[in-house]
Design a binder for these strands. Structure first.
Lengths: 254, 254
DNA sequence: CGTAGTCTTGATTTCCGTCAATCGGGGTGG
DNA sequence: CCACCCCGATTGACGGAAATCAAGACTACG
């Protein structure tokens, strides 16, 4: 089954590249801008799996740059029900734009062991004023994130379980490879079924059964730490997935 | 029953005040800034009920300032299922930040007759560069909107029907009055049950039944064009509603 | 070899959607 | 002025989807 050939961005050997790569998709960085981004990554800490990086309700003093690993943003209701709001991948700035709130609206938890650099809010803010192009790019990225959240609203509100799961893998694939999913696409997949369930608003057993149904239909396969989109076309049709919603736009003013 | 005493911001006689009021909550406007905002509102058009202001997939050429009325942003799946993503009230800039995408990701529809002013994208962009404080305020407002969308994700993913409906009215109340809901609070309510259902991911009959159950529990009453929160405390407990998530933060740099 | 976490499966119950019919008010045209 | 009609609210019967509860299997790892 050719284990280990899937790209695993969250286990990258060159974590510092992720941030630059993300910005380079939007603009050509000047040397000063590059230096500034590099300075963010200096004091990276290693966080173990399952450790919370941010706890809901706490004061916001930093944003975090994720250098390696994968994290989830989530909220829990008083009785313990949990809803995952989204994921952070290497190069993502965690806590933006929610740093515009005094207290964290959601918690952030490390799904895999992760490497994060804390950026004090003052340093972050001063970067935004000194480098307006970086501010613009961050805003652009945040706007895209908002669009993704809206698509997830459609998923939770109006799609059934099979559609949700299909959509979930297609979204993940689009986020990782930045392209339209193709048949046989393999994606690294370090997420438990409980995480899938809490992302999609399902119970863990039902998420499991739904995965099985997709496997029986030869749409999707799971193999250890990776997922395979056996029939991308079928998944797209099943989920009413529209790749256009994931296209990243260039920033007009460059 | 004292009809007509509820505030109806979307029927305001002084629509131009809404935009200023919204900004004034974040910063003290200079004369130049005030003039700029005023210039946005010049060529307002009247749109009838049910008319689409923006259609999903169309090119984005304008943002719209909503002067009077109430609009919904929504997406529909190929088979007709509809999910409402959020509402626009007077003073809201419709199509921001989604104007950062080439094509509209969602449609916008007038729920009541509305008055809107189209702002060409170039004019809007030039305003943002000439008046950075206005840009900052808009960004702040957008960030708050994102926080609301995340709370709705929790609602759709993890709350049951009664909790969703209770949450819906509490959110609406918080948005309109900008304060913690109180017992007996009356809010103007021009929304049909179909709109409630499509917002909350429920079927119309089930939304109706759920409303009835809340009425039977003396938590909530509907009376023509207004809703009454009979037992705000009960609704808050039922929905696990946290008013802190609706608090607007002042902008740090003023 | 034992333990903890995850995956898997079954039986049962609950919630919610679907379909269909009725009701009621406000507008409209004859 | 009145009959009609459309839209929205309402209710009931029924079926299906998903949650819950519970138990067991597999795997990685100490």
């Amino acid at each position: 089954m050719d284990i280990g050939t899937a790209p695993q961005p969250w286990l990258s050997d060159a974590p510092w590249a992720a941030l630059e790569a993300k910005f380079s998709r939007y603009l050509a960085l000047s040397d000063a801008e590059r230096d500034c981004l590099a300075s963010w990554q200096a004091p990276a800490r290693v966080m173990p799996r399952r450790r919370d990086l941010v706890r809901e309700g706490n004061d916001v003093a930093c944003v975090y740059l994720l250098c390696r690993g994968i994290v989830s943003r989530y909220r829990v209701l008083p009785d313990g029900r949990r809803q995952i709001l989204g994921f952070g991948l290497p190069g993502d700035v965690i806590g933006f734009p929610s740093c515009s709130l005094a207290r964290a609206a959601a918690s952030v938890c490390c799904i895999t062991e992760s490497e994060v650099a804390a950026i004090p809010l003052e340093q972050f803010a001063s970067t935004l004023t000194r480098f307006p192009r970086i501010a613009a790019a961050l805003f652009w990225i945040a706007a895209r994130e908002t669009a993704l959240a809206q698509e997830r609203l459609v998923t939770l509100g109006r799609r059934g379980a099979e559609e949700r799961v299909a959509y979930f893998f297609l979204e993940l694939c689009a986020l990782l490879h930045k392209g339209r999913p193709r048949d046989g696409e393999r994606i690294a997949f370090p997420l438990t079924q409980e995480i899938i369930a809490d992302t999609l608003g399902l119970s863990t057993p039902h998420a499991n059964r739904t995965l099985r149904r997709l496997r029986d239909q030869r749409l999707l396969a799971l193999d250890g730490q990776e997922a395979i989109l056996l029939d991308a076309r079928g998944l797209i049709a099943l989920a009413s997935f529209d790749p256009a919603h994931f296209a990243a736009m260039p920033i007009p003013g460059l």
